[in-house]
Nucleic acid binder design. Sequence first.
DNA 1: GGGTTTTGTGTAAAAATGACAATAAGCCCT
DNA 2: AGGGCTTATTGTCATTTTTACACAAAACCC
Lengths: 234, 234
Amino acid sequence: MDTIGEVSAFFKSAFSVDNVIFGFDGGDLKVLLIQRGQAPFKDKWALPGDLVYPNEDLDTAAERVLEQLTGLRGVYLEQVKTFGAVNRHPLGRVITIAYISLIKISNYTVTPASFAQSAQWHRVDEVGELAFDHNEILESCLRRLKRKVRTAPIGFELLPPKFTLTELQQLYDSVLQLPKRLDKRNFRKKILSMNLLVECPEMQEGVAHRPAKLYKFDRAKYVQFVNEGFVFDI
Amino acid sequence: MDTIGEVSAFFKSAFSVDNVIFGFDGGDLKVLLIQRGQAPFKDKWALPGDLVYPNEDLDTAAERVLEQLTGLRGVYLEQVKTFGAVNRHPLGRVITIAYISLIKISNYTVTPASFAQSAQWHRVDEVGELAFDHNEILESCLRRLKRKVRTAPIGFELLPPKFTLTELQQLYDSVLQLPKRLDKRNFRKKILSMNLLVECPEMQEGVAHRPAKLYKFDRAKYVQFVNEGFVFDI
DNA sequence: GGGTTTTGTGTAAAAATGACAATAAGCCCT
DNA sequence: AGGGCTTATTGTCATTTTTACACAAAACCC
Protein backbone atom coordinates (compact mmCIF):
# COMPACT_ATOMS: atom_id res chain seq x y z
CA MET A 1 0.00 0.00 0.00
CA ASP A 2 0.98 3.60 -0.15
CA THR A 3 1.16 6.19 2.57
CA ILE A 4 -0.78 7.25 5.59
CA GLY A 5 -1.52 10.90 5.42
CA GLU A 6 -3.92 13.01 7.40
CA VAL A 7 -6.34 10.19 7.26
CA SER A 8 -7.90 9.62 10.62
CA ALA A 9 -11.04 8.60 8.76
CA PHE A 10 -9.19 5.54 7.63
CA PHE A 11 -8.65 4.48 11.20
CA LYS A 12 -12.31 4.00 12.03
CA SER A 13 -12.17 0.36 11.21
CA ALA A 14 -11.17 -2.87 12.81
CA PHE A 15 -10.14 -6.32 11.77
CA SER A 16 -10.85 -9.70 13.14
CA VAL A 17 -9.97 -13.30 12.51
CA ASP A 18 -12.50 -16.06 12.11
CA ASN A 19 -11.51 -19.64 12.48
CA VAL A 20 -13.09 -22.53 10.66
CA ILE A 21 -12.11 -25.43 12.87
CA PHE A 22 -12.51 -28.77 11.19
CA GLY A 23 -12.64 -32.13 12.89
CA PHE A 24 -13.30 -35.67 11.73
CA ASP A 25 -15.35 -38.06 13.73
CA GLY A 26 -17.04 -41.31 12.98
CA GLY A 27 -16.93 -40.85 9.25
CA ASP A 28 -18.15 -37.27 9.18
CA LEU A 29 -16.38 -33.99 8.62
CA LYS A 30 -17.40 -31.53 11.28
CA VAL A 31 -16.94 -27.87 12.05
CA LEU A 32 -16.82 -26.30 15.49
CA LEU A 33 -19.37 -23.50 15.93
CA ILE A 34 -20.22 -21.30 18.85
CA GLN A 35 -23.57 -19.95 19.83
CA ARG A 36 -23.34 -16.21 20.22
CA GLY A 37 -24.00 -14.93 23.71
CA GLN A 38 -24.70 -11.34 22.75
CA ALA A 39 -25.99 -9.04 20.05
CA PRO A 40 -25.67 -8.80 17.17
CA PHE A 41 -26.94 -12.19 16.09
CA LYS A 42 -27.47 -13.26 19.70
CA ASP A 43 -28.16 -17.00 19.98
CA LYS A 44 -27.16 -17.59 16.38
CA TRP A 45 -24.44 -20.07 15.52
CA ALA A 46 -21.25 -18.52 14.29
CA LEU A 47 -17.62 -19.19 13.57
CA PRO A 48 -15.32 -18.60 16.50
CA GLY A 49 -13.35 -15.42 16.04
CA ASP A 50 -12.18 -12.27 17.68
CA LEU A 51 -10.83 -8.85 16.98
CA VAL A 52 -7.11 -8.75 16.38
CA TYR A 53 -5.24 -6.98 19.12
CA PRO A 54 -3.39 -3.84 18.06
CA ASN A 55 0.00 -5.40 18.58
CA GLU A 56 -0.82 -8.92 17.55
CA ASP A 57 0.04 -10.63 14.29
CA LEU A 58 -2.80 -12.17 12.32
CA ASP A 59 -1.65 -15.75 12.69
CA THR A 60 -1.15 -15.19 16.39
CA ALA A 61 -4.69 -13.95 16.75
CA ALA A 62 -6.00 -17.02 14.97
CA GLU A 63 -3.93 -19.23 17.27
CA ARG A 64 -5.27 -17.41 20.28
CA VAL A 65 -8.88 -17.84 19.22
CA LEU A 66 -8.27 -21.51 18.73
CA GLU A 67 -6.55 -21.97 22.04
CA GLN A 68 -9.16 -20.05 24.00
CA LEU A 69 -11.84 -22.28 22.59
CA THR A 70 -10.16 -25.65 22.57
CA GLY A 71 -7.07 -25.40 24.69
CA LEU A 72 -5.04 -26.68 21.77
CA ARG A 73 -1.76 -25.24 20.54
CA GLY A 74 0.51 -26.03 17.66
CA VAL A 75 -2.22 -27.28 15.37
CA TYR A 76 -2.51 -26.86 11.65
CA LEU A 77 -3.58 -23.34 10.71
CA GLU A 78 -3.88 -21.76 7.30
CA GLN A 79 -5.03 -18.38 6.20
CA VAL A 80 -7.70 -18.67 3.53
CA LYS A 81 -9.34 -15.43 2.55
CA THR A 82 -10.26 -11.99 3.81
CA PHE A 83 -13.85 -10.81 3.82
CA GLY A 84 -14.46 -7.12 3.84
CA ALA A 85 -17.82 -6.18 2.38
CA VAL A 86 -18.70 -2.73 3.68
CA ASN A 87 -21.82 -3.89 5.49
CA ARG A 88 -20.78 -7.32 6.59
CA HIS A 89 -20.77 -6.22 10.24
CA PRO A 90 -23.78 -4.28 11.50
CA LEU A 91 -21.79 -2.29 14.05
CA GLY A 92 -19.04 -0.84 11.93
CA ARG A 93 -16.46 -1.49 9.30
CA VAL A 94 -14.85 -4.76 10.25
CA ILE A 95 -12.96 -6.91 7.84
CA THR A 96 -12.18 -10.42 8.85
CA ILE A 97 -9.39 -12.76 7.91
CA ALA A 98 -10.62 -16.33 7.69
CA TYR A 99 -8.48 -19.26 8.80
CA ILE A 100 -8.79 -23.00 8.65
CA SER A 101 -7.69 -25.15 11.58
CA LEU A 102 -7.49 -28.90 11.49
CA ILE A 103 -7.63 -30.67 14.81
CA LYS A 104 -7.80 -34.21 16.08
CA ILE A 105 -11.29 -34.23 17.41
CA SER A 106 -10.44 -36.71 20.16
CA ASN A 107 -8.11 -34.11 21.67
CA TYR A 108 -10.94 -31.64 21.98
CA THR A 109 -12.72 -31.00 25.22
CA VAL A 110 -15.43 -28.38 25.41
CA THR A 111 -14.02 -25.17 26.80
CA PRO A 112 -16.35 -22.44 25.62
CA ALA A 113 -14.50 -19.18 25.71
CA SER A 114 -16.01 -16.19 27.38
CA PHE A 115 -17.44 -14.93 24.12
CA ALA A 116 -19.62 -17.94 23.55
CA GLN A 117 -22.54 -19.49 25.31
CA SER A 118 -21.63 -22.85 24.00
CA ALA A 119 -19.54 -24.57 21.38
CA GLN A 120 -20.58 -27.61 19.43
CA TRP A 121 -19.49 -29.75 16.54
CA HIS A 122 -21.76 -29.65 13.50
CA ARG A 123 -21.60 -31.84 10.44
CA VAL A 124 -20.50 -29.56 7.62
CA ASP A 125 -23.44 -30.68 5.53
CA GLU A 126 -25.90 -29.83 8.29
CA VAL A 127 -24.88 -26.31 9.15
CA GLY A 128 -27.82 -23.96 9.13
CA GLU A 129 -27.91 -20.22 8.77
CA LEU A 130 -24.98 -18.62 10.54
CA ALA A 131 -24.35 -15.12 11.86
CA PHE A 132 -22.78 -12.41 9.73
CA ASP A 133 -21.40 -13.67 6.41
CA HIS A 134 -20.18 -16.84 8.07
CA ASN A 135 -21.93 -19.19 5.67
CA GLU A 136 -19.94 -17.64 2.85
CA ILE A 137 -16.75 -17.91 4.86
CA LEU A 138 -17.42 -21.54 5.64
CA GLU A 139 -18.02 -22.27 1.96
CA SER A 140 -14.71 -20.71 0.99
CA CYS A 141 -12.84 -22.62 3.64
CA LEU A 142 -14.48 -25.88 2.71
CA ARG A 143 -13.54 -25.40 -0.93
CA ARG A 144 -9.98 -24.71 0.12
CA LEU A 145 -9.88 -27.80 2.30
CA LYS A 146 -11.20 -29.95 -0.53
CA ARG A 147 -8.49 -28.77 -2.83
CA LYS A 148 -5.65 -28.82 -0.37
CA VAL A 149 -6.36 -32.21 1.12
CA ARG A 150 -5.49 -33.68 -2.28
CA THR A 151 -2.25 -31.81 -2.76
CA ALA A 152 -0.73 -31.77 0.70
CA PRO A 153 -0.66 -34.32 3.51
CA ILE A 154 -2.95 -32.33 5.75
CA GLY A 155 -5.62 -34.98 6.13
CA PHE A 156 -3.47 -36.62 8.79
CA GLU A 157 -4.02 -33.57 11.00
CA LEU A 158 -7.61 -34.71 11.39
CA LEU A 159 -6.78 -38.27 12.42
CA PRO A 160 -5.25 -39.64 15.58
CA PRO A 161 -1.53 -40.39 15.34
CA LYS A 162 -2.25 -44.05 14.59
CA PHE A 163 -4.99 -44.86 12.14
CA THR A 164 -6.14 -47.56 9.78
CA LEU A 165 -6.22 -47.24 6.04
CA THR A 166 -9.99 -47.50 6.14
CA GLU A 167 -10.16 -44.52 8.46
CA LEU A 168 -7.91 -42.57 6.15
CA GLN A 169 -10.08 -43.40 3.19
CA GLN A 170 -13.25 -42.48 5.06
CA LEU A 171 -11.65 -39.14 5.78
CA TYR A 172 -11.00 -38.51 2.11
CA ASP A 173 -14.45 -39.66 1.16
CA SER A 174 -16.14 -37.38 3.63
CA VAL A 175 -14.02 -34.35 2.79
CA LEU A 176 -14.13 -34.70 -0.96
CA GLN A 177 -17.76 -35.77 -1.27
CA LEU A 178 -17.15 -37.19 -4.71
CA PRO A 179 -20.04 -38.68 -6.67
CA LYS A 180 -18.43 -42.09 -6.20
CA ARG A 181 -16.40 -43.09 -3.19
CA LEU A 182 -12.78 -43.90 -3.75
CA ASP A 183 -11.96 -47.48 -4.69
CA LYS A 184 -10.57 -49.32 -1.71
CA ARG A 185 -7.84 -51.25 -3.48
CA ASN A 186 -6.73 -48.35 -5.63
CA PHE A 187 -6.69 -45.97 -2.70
CA ARG A 188 -4.51 -48.28 -0.63
CA LYS A 189 -2.20 -48.94 -3.52
CA LYS A 190 -1.75 -45.23 -4.13
CA ILE A 191 -1.25 -44.11 -0.57
CA LEU A 192 1.13 -46.94 0.28
CA SER A 193 3.15 -46.39 -2.87
CA MET A 194 4.02 -42.93 -1.58
CA ASN A 195 6.03 -44.55 1.22
CA LEU A 196 4.86 -41.97 3.71
CA LEU A 197 3.14 -44.36 6.09
CA VAL A 198 4.88 -46.63 8.54
CA GLU A 199 3.22 -49.70 9.90
CA CYS A 200 2.82 -49.83 13.66
CA PRO A 201 3.64 -53.09 15.45
CA GLU A 202 0.27 -53.20 17.18
CA MET A 203 -3.13 -53.70 15.67
CA GLN A 204 -6.53 -52.14 15.95
CA GLU A 205 -8.31 -53.33 19.10
CA GLY A 206 -11.83 -53.66 20.36
CA VAL A 207 -13.54 -54.23 17.05
CA ALA A 208 -15.85 -57.13 16.34
CA HIS A 209 -14.14 -58.17 13.15
CA ARG A 210 -10.73 -58.71 11.69
CA PRO A 211 -8.53 -55.99 13.21
CA ALA A 212 -6.75 -53.65 10.83
CA LYS A 213 -3.13 -52.63 10.78
CA LEU A 214 -2.34 -49.27 12.28
CA TYR A 215 -0.19 -46.76 10.43
CA LYS A 216 1.56 -43.54 11.28
CA PHE A 217 2.33 -40.66 8.94
CA ASP A 218 6.08 -40.11 8.63
CA ARG A 219 6.51 -36.37 8.36
CA ALA A 220 10.30 -36.49 8.17
CA LYS A 221 10.10 -38.69 5.11
CA TYR A 222 7.59 -36.36 3.57
CA VAL A 223 9.89 -33.39 4.01
CA GLN A 224 12.76 -35.34 2.53
CA PHE A 225 10.75 -36.52 -0.47
CA VAL A 226 9.51 -33.00 -1.15
CA ASN A 227 13.08 -31.80 -1.28
CA GLU A 228 13.70 -34.49 -3.85
CA GLY A 229 10.85 -33.23 -5.99
CA PHE A 230 7.96 -35.31 -4.70
CA VAL A 231 4.48 -33.86 -5.04
CA PHE A 232 1.71 -35.21 -2.84
CA ASP A 233 -1.35 -35.97 -4.92
CA ILE A 234 -4.45 -38.01 -4.31
CA MET B 1 -15.64 -12.45 14.43
CA ASP B 2 -17.27 -11.54 17.68
CA THR B 3 -18.48 -8.23 18.95
CA ILE B 4 -17.33 -4.68 19.07
CA GLY B 5 -17.43 -3.46 22.58
CA GLU B 6 -15.88 -0.42 24.14
CA VAL B 7 -12.95 -0.91 21.90
CA SER B 8 -11.84 2.36 20.38
CA ALA B 9 -8.30 1.04 20.65
CA PHE B 10 -9.14 -1.45 17.98
CA PHE B 11 -9.96 1.33 15.57
CA LYS B 12 -6.46 2.73 15.39
CA SER B 13 -5.62 0.68 12.38
CA ALA B 14 -6.10 0.79 8.65
CA PHE B 15 -6.12 -1.59 5.76
CA SER B 16 -4.91 -1.33 2.26
CA VAL B 17 -4.85 -3.35 -0.92
CA ASP B 18 -1.73 -4.08 -2.90
CA ASN B 19 -1.95 -5.21 -6.44
CA VAL B 20 0.51 -7.50 -8.15
CA ILE B 21 -0.15 -6.70 -11.78
CA PHE B 22 1.25 -9.30 -14.12
CA GLY B 23 1.84 -8.90 -17.82
CA PHE B 24 3.44 -11.01 -20.51
CA ASP B 25 5.63 -9.52 -23.16
CA GLY B 26 8.10 -10.94 -25.58
CA GLY B 27 8.47 -14.19 -23.76
CA ASP B 28 8.86 -12.74 -20.29
CA LEU B 29 6.54 -12.54 -17.34
CA LYS B 30 6.55 -9.03 -15.94
CA VAL B 31 5.17 -7.18 -12.98
CA LEU B 32 4.17 -3.53 -12.88
CA LEU B 33 5.92 -1.60 -10.12
CA ILE B 34 5.79 2.01 -9.08
CA GLN B 35 8.55 4.14 -7.72
CA ARG B 36 7.44 5.72 -4.51
CA GLY B 37 7.22 9.50 -4.55
CA GLN B 38 7.24 10.00 -0.80
CA ALA B 39 8.39 8.63 2.49
CA PRO B 40 8.51 6.03 3.79
CA PHE B 41 10.65 4.16 1.28
CA LYS B 42 10.84 7.21 -1.00
CA ASP B 43 12.29 6.34 -4.42
CA LYS B 44 12.03 2.62 -3.72
CA TRP B 45 10.13 0.39 -6.07
CA ALA B 46 6.89 -0.94 -4.65
CA LEU B 47 3.67 -2.66 -5.54
CA PRO B 48 0.86 -0.32 -6.47
CA GLY B 49 -1.68 -0.09 -3.69
CA ASP B 50 -3.76 2.24 -1.61
CA LEU B 51 -5.72 2.46 1.57
CA VAL B 52 -9.22 1.09 1.32
CA TYR B 53 -11.85 3.77 1.59
CA PRO B 54 -14.17 3.47 4.57
CA ASN B 55 -17.16 2.66 2.43
CA GLU B 56 -15.42 0.67 -0.24
CA ASP B 57 -15.36 -3.08 -0.68
CA LEU B 58 -11.98 -4.75 -0.89
CA ASP B 59 -12.34 -5.93 -4.46
CA THR B 60 -13.51 -2.47 -5.45
CA ALA B 61 -10.44 -0.91 -3.92
CA ALA B 62 -8.22 -3.29 -5.84
CA GLU B 63 -10.08 -2.44 -9.05
CA ARG B 64 -9.66 1.24 -8.35
CA VAL B 65 -5.94 0.96 -7.79
CA LEU B 66 -5.62 -0.89 -11.04
CA GLU B 67 -7.71 1.55 -12.99
CA GLN B 68 -5.94 4.60 -11.60
CA LEU B 69 -2.64 3.16 -12.69
CA THR B 70 -3.51 1.57 -16.00
CA GLY B 71 -6.88 2.91 -17.06
CA LEU B 72 -8.08 -0.67 -17.39
CA ARG B 73 -11.35 -2.04 -16.08
CA GLY B 74 -12.91 -5.45 -16.04
CA VAL B 75 -9.66 -7.34 -15.90
CA TYR B 76 -8.88 -10.54 -14.03
CA LEU B 77 -8.48 -9.92 -10.33
CA GLU B 78 -7.99 -12.40 -7.54
CA GLN B 79 -7.46 -11.97 -3.86
CA VAL B 80 -4.42 -13.90 -2.71
CA LYS B 81 -3.41 -13.30 0.87
CA THR B 82 -3.50 -10.77 3.66
CA PHE B 83 -0.31 -9.54 5.27
CA GLY B 84 -0.58 -8.12 8.73
CA ALA B 85 2.65 -8.34 10.66
CA VAL B 86 2.54 -5.77 13.43
CA ASN B 87 5.51 -3.83 12.15
CA ARG B 88 5.10 -4.23 8.44
CA HIS B 89 4.28 -0.53 8.04
CA PRO B 90 6.55 1.98 9.79
CA LEU B 91 3.79 4.54 10.34
CA GLY B 92 1.16 2.46 12.05
CA ARG B 93 -0.77 -0.76 12.06
CA VAL B 94 -1.73 -1.36 8.48
CA ILE B 95 -2.69 -4.72 7.15
CA THR B 96 -2.81 -5.19 3.45
CA ILE B 97 -4.80 -7.49 1.25
CA ALA B 98 -2.79 -8.64 -1.74
CA TYR B 99 -4.37 -9.13 -5.14
CA ILE B 100 -3.21 -10.48 -8.46
CA SER B 101 -4.26 -8.79 -11.68
CA LEU B 102 -3.59 -10.22 -15.10
CA ILE B 103 -3.59 -7.78 -17.96
CA LYS B 104 -2.86 -7.82 -21.64
CA ILE B 105 0.29 -5.80 -21.67
CA SER B 106 -0.41 -4.35 -25.11
CA ASN B 107 -3.47 -2.62 -23.66
CA TYR B 108 -1.37 -0.86 -21.12
CA THR B 109 -0.28 2.73 -21.49
CA VAL B 110 1.69 4.40 -18.76
CA THR B 111 -0.60 6.46 -16.57
CA PRO B 112 1.20 6.85 -13.29
CA ALA B 113 -1.30 7.62 -10.61
CA SER B 114 -0.77 10.51 -8.29
CA PHE B 115 0.84 8.31 -5.70
CA ALA B 116 3.70 7.28 -7.92
CA GLN B 117 6.56 9.04 -9.55
CA SER B 118 6.66 6.49 -12.27
CA ALA B 119 5.46 3.05 -13.15
CA GLN B 120 7.45 0.46 -15.01
CA TRP B 121 7.33 -3.16 -16.02
CA HIS B 122 9.97 -5.37 -14.44
CA ARG B 123 10.79 -8.93 -15.28
CA VAL B 124 9.68 -10.98 -12.30
CA ASP B 125 13.09 -12.60 -12.10
CA GLU B 126 14.82 -9.22 -12.00
CA VAL B 127 12.92 -7.46 -9.27
CA GLY B 128 15.24 -5.99 -6.67
CA GLU B 129 14.54 -5.02 -3.11
CA LEU B 130 11.08 -3.53 -2.76
CA ALA B 131 9.49 -1.27 -0.16
CA PHE B 132 7.69 -2.64 2.91
CA ASP B 133 7.18 -6.42 2.79
CA HIS B 134 6.46 -6.27 -0.90
CA ASN B 135 9.04 -8.86 -1.88
CA GLU B 136 7.25 -11.35 0.32
CA ILE B 137 3.91 -10.37 -1.18
CA LEU B 138 5.24 -10.74 -4.68
CA GLU B 139 6.57 -14.19 -3.86
CA SER B 140 3.20 -15.31 -2.57
CA CYS B 141 1.40 -13.98 -5.60
CA LEU B 142 3.86 -15.57 -7.97
CA ARG B 143 3.42 -18.93 -6.28
CA ARG B 144 -0.32 -18.56 -6.56
CA LEU B 145 -0.07 -17.67 -10.24
CA LYS B 146 2.13 -20.67 -10.93
CA ARG B 147 -0.38 -22.99 -9.38
CA LYS B 148 -3.49 -21.41 -10.76
CA VAL B 149 -2.30 -21.07 -14.33
CA ARG B 150 -2.27 -24.87 -14.49
CA THR B 151 -5.72 -25.42 -13.08
CA ALA B 152 -7.75 -22.59 -14.57
CA PRO B 153 -7.71 -20.92 -17.97
CA ILE B 154 -6.30 -17.67 -16.69
CA GLY B 155 -3.21 -17.63 -18.87
CA PHE B 156 -5.33 -16.26 -21.68
CA GLU B 157 -5.83 -13.08 -19.67
CA LEU B 158 -2.19 -12.28 -20.33
CA LEU B 159 -2.37 -12.77 -24.09
CA PRO B 160 -4.05 -10.69 -26.77
CA PRO B 161 -7.44 -12.03 -27.88
CA LYS B 162 -5.83 -13.79 -30.83
CA PHE B 163 -2.62 -15.67 -30.25
CA THR B 164 -0.53 -18.48 -31.64
CA LEU B 165 0.08 -21.77 -29.92
CA THR B 166 3.74 -20.90 -29.67
CA GLU B 167 2.89 -17.72 -27.79
CA LEU B 168 0.67 -19.69 -25.47
CA GLN B 169 3.40 -22.17 -24.80
CA GLN B 170 5.97 -19.43 -24.20
CA LEU B 171 3.57 -17.99 -21.66
CA TYR B 172 3.39 -21.27 -19.79
CA ASP B 173 7.12 -21.74 -19.98
CA SER B 174 7.85 -18.31 -18.59
CA VAL B 175 5.28 -18.53 -15.81
CA LEU B 176 6.06 -22.06 -14.69
CA GLN B 177 9.84 -21.87 -15.01
CA LEU B 178 10.12 -25.62 -15.10
CA PRO B 179 13.54 -27.26 -15.29
CA LYS B 180 12.67 -28.37 -18.83
CA ARG B 181 10.46 -26.42 -21.19
CA LEU B 182 7.24 -28.05 -22.22
CA ASP B 183 7.38 -30.33 -25.23
CA LYS B 184 5.96 -28.55 -28.25
CA ARG B 185 4.04 -31.43 -29.75
CA ASN B 186 2.67 -32.69 -26.48
CA PHE B 187 1.65 -29.21 -25.40
CA ARG B 188 -0.28 -28.60 -28.60
CA LYS B 189 -1.91 -31.99 -28.42
CA LYS B 190 -3.05 -31.37 -24.88
CA ILE B 191 -4.34 -27.85 -25.28
CA LEU B 192 -6.14 -28.60 -28.52
CA SER B 193 -7.70 -31.75 -27.13
CA MET B 194 -9.51 -29.59 -24.58
CA ASN B 195 -11.53 -28.07 -27.42
CA LEU B 196 -11.36 -24.65 -25.84
CA LEU B 197 -9.57 -22.89 -28.68
CA VAL B 198 -11.15 -21.84 -31.92
CA GLU B 199 -9.09 -21.27 -35.02
CA CYS B 200 -9.28 -17.80 -36.50
CA PRO B 201 -9.64 -17.48 -40.27
CA GLU B 202 -6.67 -15.17 -40.53
CA MET B 203 -3.03 -15.91 -39.94
CA GLN B 204 -0.17 -14.33 -38.12
CA GLU B 205 1.29 -11.44 -40.14
CA GLY B 206 4.55 -9.61 -40.37
CA VAL B 207 6.86 -12.43 -39.42
CA ALA B 208 9.83 -13.51 -41.51
CA HIS B 209 8.92 -17.16 -41.51
CA ARG B 210 5.98 -19.46 -41.92
CA PRO B 211 3.05 -17.68 -40.31
CA ALA B 212 1.22 -19.45 -37.54
CA LYS B 213 -2.47 -19.99 -37.12
CA LEU B 214 -4.22 -17.65 -34.71
CA TYR B 215 -6.54 -18.98 -32.04
CA LYS B 216 -9.08 -17.50 -29.66
CA PHE B 217 -10.07 -18.83 -26.25
CA ASP B 218 -13.74 -19.79 -26.17
CA ARG B 219 -14.93 -18.86 -22.73
CA ALA B 220 -18.52 -19.93 -23.31
CA LYS B 221 -17.37 -23.44 -24.13
CA TYR B 222 -15.21 -23.47 -21.04
CA VAL B 223 -18.13 -22.57 -18.82
CA GLN B 224 -20.24 -25.25 -20.46
CA PHE B 225 -17.57 -27.91 -20.11
CA VAL B 226 -17.01 -27.05 -16.46
CA ASN B 227 -20.70 -27.57 -15.82
CA GLU B 228 -20.31 -30.98 -17.39
CA GLY B 229 -17.48 -31.84 -15.02
CA PHE B 230 -14.45 -30.75 -17.01
CA VAL B 231 -11.36 -29.74 -15.06
CA PHE B 232 -8.76 -27.56 -16.74
CA ASP B 233 -5.33 -29.01 -16.18
CA ILE B 234 -2.00 -28.45 -17.81
C1' DG C 1 -18.06 -74.10 15.53
C1' DG C 2 -20.80 -71.44 12.39
C1' DG C 3 -22.23 -66.73 11.26
C1' DT C 4 -21.01 -61.95 10.76
C1' DT C 5 -18.17 -58.26 9.61
C1' DT C 6 -14.28 -55.93 7.86
C1' DT C 7 -9.44 -56.50 6.25
C1' DG C 8 -6.28 -57.27 2.74
C1' DT C 9 -4.77 -58.28 -1.81
C1' DG C 10 -3.73 -58.78 -7.88
C1' DT C 11 -4.63 -58.41 -12.63
C1' DA C 12 -5.97 -56.84 -17.00
C1' DA C 13 -7.82 -53.23 -20.01
C1' DA C 14 -7.83 -48.42 -21.01
C1' DA C 15 -6.06 -43.92 -20.82
C1' DA C 16 -2.55 -40.56 -20.27
C1' DT C 17 2.07 -39.22 -20.61
C1' DG C 18 6.61 -38.61 -22.50
C1' DA C 19 10.09 -38.89 -25.94
C1' DC C 20 11.29 -37.96 -30.40
C1' DA C 21 12.27 -35.67 -36.13
C1' DA C 22 11.04 -34.63 -40.68
C1' DT C 23 8.29 -31.77 -43.92
C1' DA C 24 5.73 -27.36 -44.97
C1' DA C 25 5.19 -22.47 -45.43
C1' DG C 26 6.41 -18.08 -45.88
C1' DC C 27 10.08 -14.33 -46.00
C1' DC C 28 14.50 -12.51 -47.55
C1' DC C 29 18.07 -11.96 -50.40
C1' DT C 30 20.49 -12.33 -54.62
C1' DA D 1 13.05 -17.36 -59.96
C1' DG D 2 15.59 -19.82 -56.72
C1' DG D 3 18.17 -21.01 -52.56
C1' DG D 4 18.62 -20.14 -47.72
C1' DC D 5 16.60 -19.09 -43.36
C1' DT D 6 13.34 -19.50 -39.75
C1' DT D 7 9.45 -21.18 -37.46
C1' DA D 8 4.96 -24.05 -37.91
C1' DT D 9 2.87 -28.22 -38.11
C1' DT D 10 2.08 -33.05 -37.50
C1' DG D 11 2.13 -38.79 -35.59
C1' DT D 12 3.87 -42.91 -33.45
C1' DC D 13 5.46 -45.89 -30.11
C1' DA D 14 6.95 -47.19 -25.38
C1' DT D 15 6.03 -46.35 -20.72
C1' DT D 16 3.37 -45.10 -16.94
C1' DT D 17 -0.80 -44.29 -14.68
C1' DT D 18 -5.45 -45.05 -13.90
C1' DT D 19 -9.53 -47.65 -13.48
C1' DA D 20 -12.53 -51.50 -12.71
C1' DC D 21 -13.37 -55.44 -10.26
C1' DA D 22 -14.04 -60.18 -6.37
C1' DC D 23 -12.64 -63.42 -3.05
C1' DA D 24 -10.08 -65.48 0.83
C1' DA D 25 -8.40 -64.37 5.68
C1' DA D 26 -8.92 -62.84 10.43
C1' DA D 27 -11.09 -61.83 14.48
C1' DC D 28 -15.36 -61.49 17.28
C1' DC D 29 -19.87 -63.12 18.85
C1' DC D 30 -23.06 -66.21 20.03
